[in-house]
C-alpha cells in the first residue's frame, strides 16, 4: 500500500459488474434480433417452399391458375430496374461526391448543396414516386416504363450514394494527396490513382446498401404505375436486329416496356384472399431475399478482391 492509495476509491467490483451487465445487454439485443430474423425466415420458407422450384422462376403470374404462377416478369423486372438504376446512380453519385469533396470550393453555396443532399436522403420515397410520375412519366413521356422506374429509383438512392461516397473519400488521409501532388500529379491523377482506390471499399458499402434499398422499395414504383399483371419481360416482345445498331435499338425498346418488380408482385399476391396466393407471396419473398443475398455476396467478394489487389 502506497500513500497515494488513500486518494483513490477504485470500486472495482462495481465497475466489473457494470461492464458485465453491458456485455450481457449487447449479447441479448444481438441475439434477439437474430432470433426474430430466424423466425421470419423460417415462416417465409415454411409457407413458400412447396411452390418454390426452378419453374417458379420461369413462369408468369396468373390469376386463373395460381398454382401455375411464377415470378418471371417480376424477377426480370427487378434485374432490369436494378441494372439501370446502378448504371445511372453509381456514376452520378460517385461523380458528385468526388466533385464536392475534391474539386468544389468550400463556400456557402457548396455547404447549401451538402445540406440539401443530407435532407434529400430523409425524404419519404413516395415523394420521389410523385416526382417520377410528374417528370419522367408525364413530362418526359417515358410512360410507365422500366426507364421511368429506374430514373425515379436513381433519384431516390442518389443522396445515400453521395453521402456514403463523400464519407469514404473524406476518410482518405490528406497525406496521400500531398504525396501525389508533390510528385507532380494532376488532381485527376491523384483522384484516379490514389483517392478513389483507397475510398473504393467504403463507396462500395454505400452502393450495396442503396442497391438493397432500391430493390426493396415499392411505394415510388406503385406511384409511377409499375403494373402487376405483366406477362412478358422487358425486351421480351421485341426482336433484336443483327449487329450493334440492332442491339441498341432493342435496348431502347426494352427500357420503354412496362414492368413489374418482385416487391410489387409479392404485395399484390399478399392482398388476395385465397391461401394459395399467400404461398405465392412467401415464395416470392424467398426469391427476393435470394437475389438480394447474391447481389450483396457479389459486392462483398468484389470488395475483398479490391482490397487484396491494392499493392
Amino acid at each position: 500500500m502506497s500513500a497515494s492509495d488513500a486518494l483513490f476509491e477504485p470500486r472495482k467490483q462495481r465497475r466489473a459488474l457494470v461492464a458485465r451487465l453491458f456485455h450481457a445487454a449487447c449479447v441479448l439485443i444481438t441475439g434477439g434480433a437474430v432470433v426474430v430474423l430466424g423466425v421470419l425466415l423460417y415462416r417465409v420458407w415454411h409457407d413458400g417452399s412447396e411452390l418454390l422450384s426452378l419453374e417458379f422462376l420461369d413462369r408468369f403470374p396468373s390469376q386463373i391458375t395460381p398454382e401455375k404462377a411464377g415470378v418471371k416478369s417480376a424477377l426480370w423486372g427487378t434485374v432490369w430496374l436494378i441494372g439501370l438504376t446502378a448504371a445511372v446512380a453509381i456514376p452520378t453519385g460517385v461523380g458528385a461526391a468526388v466533385y464536392l469533396q475534391e474539386y468544389a470550393p468550400r463556400n456557402a453555396f457548396t455547404r447549401l448543396i451538402q445540406l440539401n443532399i443530407a435532407n434529400l436522403a430523409g425524404v419519404p420515397s413516395i415523394v420521389y414516386g410523385l416526382l417520377g410520375l410528374a417528370v419522367f412519366v408525364r413530362w418526359l413521356r417515358f410512360d410507365r416504363s422500366v426507364l421511368s422506374g429506374s430514373l425515379t429509383m436513381s433519384l431516390l438512392i442518389l443522396p445515400v450514394v453521395i453521402i456514403a461516397s463523400r464519407e469514404a473519400i473524406a476518410a482518405v488521409p490528406n497525406s496521400i494527396r500531398e504525396a501525389a501532388f508533390a510528385l507532380g500529379a494532376t488532381r485527376w491523377q491523384t483522384v484516379r490513382h490514389h483517392v478513389l482506390p483507397a475510398a473504393a471499399p467504403g463507396i462500395l458499402t454505400g452502393v450495396i446498401l442503396s442497391m438493397a434499398r432500391a430493390m426493396g422499395e415499392t411505394a415510388p414504383l406503385i406511384m409511377i404505375g409499375a403494373l402487376t399483371y405483366i406477362r412478358f419481360v422487358p425486351g421480351g416482345t421485341h426482336e433484336a436486329a443483327p449487329g450493334l445498331a440492332g442491339w441498341v435499338g432493342w435496348f431502347g425498346e426494352a427500357i420503354r416496356d412496362p414492368f413489374v418488380v418482385l416487391p410489387i408482385q409479392i404485395f399484390n399476391w399478399a392482398e388476395q384472399a385465397q391461401p394459395i396466393f399467400h404461398k405465392l407471396a412467401a415464395a416470392g419473398i424467398v426469391v427476393l431475399l435470394t437475389v438480394m443475398l447474391i447481389l450483396n455476396g457479389a459486392a462483398v467478394v468484389l470488395r475483398a478482391f479490391w482490397q487484396r489487389k491494392q499493392p
Binding site: 504525396a179 508533390a182 510528385l183
Partner: peptide, 15 residues
Amino acid sequence: RRSVGMVFQKPNPFP
C-alpha cells in the same frame, strides 16, 4: 514539383 521534390514529416507511402 518535378524539379523540386518533397519529403514530408510523417512517412506517407502510397498503400
